[in-house]
Design a protein around this nucleic acid. Structure first.
Lengths: 196, 196
DNA sequence: TACAAACACGAACGTTCGTGCTATATTGAT
DNA sequence: ATCAATATAGCACGAACGTTCGTGTTTGTA
């Protein structure tokens, strides 16, 4: 990896962390430069615009997400156990880094829901992909004979994600010690309702 | 109402709208002054600090929320119909103003989950109250014999709110035309699982 | 070893941020 | 009509914002 790429990926690693805490608009170039030990202009040159930095940060987060949440779950055999893995990995992902920093995508989803532009477009795309991944996992579970054959898999994906969002709220804002218990309880009921 | 109070409540009405779109940190004093036709300093004098403005904005939103969501539901007879009213009113609340402007509390919940301070504290309090309202409505439904007597009402409240958050995501970010259908479907399953 | 390309820096731009002062209107009670 | 209290405007501040520019410093290649 060339020097520039190396630096860029270090910047983006810090950017993902910072944006997870302060949001994408709270991700300022000055603060990011201070944190990475670069000058503002030196850092800026890597991206050309704040908007580009935001998009690249989301891309970097998506790469991590695939690595930490999706890929390990695909290692599980298709069916309920894979769905369980997706769910558990997501909980761990949203809780990572010692409890600090919620899921960047959740934060961005709220921040950008009224802000038109390419950053929003990219976010919508990733979120759509994530829902598709959940739906596809449900389809495979139907095919495996573990879920009802007439299950609305898109609805199932939607309900799963709602549960995750509820967890995020309970855990990060309310600091409810029962957050994980609540989330798992809701998730198990979803599984039960979908199962044969 | 004295002149000052009149102006202040007009400011806060605009502030709630603006913060619903841009978030609490995106609610800037300059933009708010421009919108209300006041000078920056004139507006500022009403609050003394940005933090106070944010808190007062949340308070104003809470007042509206009680008025539009909670109070009408309390007019319904206790039981499933009241819970349904709470749910439907919430959907309408999050969709109000011609589709623009999501729920300010949802936005603030994400924005403030890592930002310590009195604004966060106040938000946590309101969200706790909201969850209590849902739980209490469930308790009354149990007492009315419409829900199972051993229902975990706090869990029920949590699951309801998760469904609302899922709706918010589907509707505002994804612009899913089926958002309401999906939300109602999930909600009806919740009701069914809790019912006798 | 020379040289071009890639990389990073410091300084400054214009704008907006929140927040103070001080003075002037506007208001409500006497 | 007078006067004190309240309400708003004007102006200025230091800091931070994203961005641009010109200039060095590394780096890989010829």
């Amino acid at each position: 990896m060339a020097k520039g790429e190396q630096t860029k990926s270090e910047i983006l690693a810090a950017a993902v962390e910072m944006a997870s805490v302060n949001g994408l608009s709270g991700l300022t170039i000055g603060a990011l430069a201070r944190r990475t030990g670069l000058s503002k202009s030196g850092l800026f040159a890597h991206f050309g615009s704040k908007e580009s930095l935001q998009t690249k940060t989301l891309e970097a987060a998506a790469e991590r997400f695939v690595h930490q949440v999706v890929a390990p779950a695909l290692a599980e055999t298709a069916g309920v156990s894979r769905i369980r893995a997706l769910f558990e990995n997501w909980l761990a992902w949203g809780t990572a880094e010692g409890g600090r920093a919620g899921c960047l995508f959740v934060a961005a989803s709220i921040e950008l829901d009224d802000q038109e532009g390419p950053v929003r477009d990219y976010l919508v795309w990733t979120q759509g992909e994530w829902l598709k991944i959940l739906a596809r996992a449900a389809e495979r579970t139907v095919a495996a004979g573990q879920f009802q054959h007439d299950l609305d898999t898109r609805q199932f994906a939607h309900d799963c994600y709602s549960t995750m969002l509820g967890f995020h709220h309970a855990r990060r804002l309310m600091r409810d010690p029962k957050a994980e218990t609540r989330a798992r309880s809701a998730f198990e009921r979803l599984l039960a309702a979908a199962s044969i």
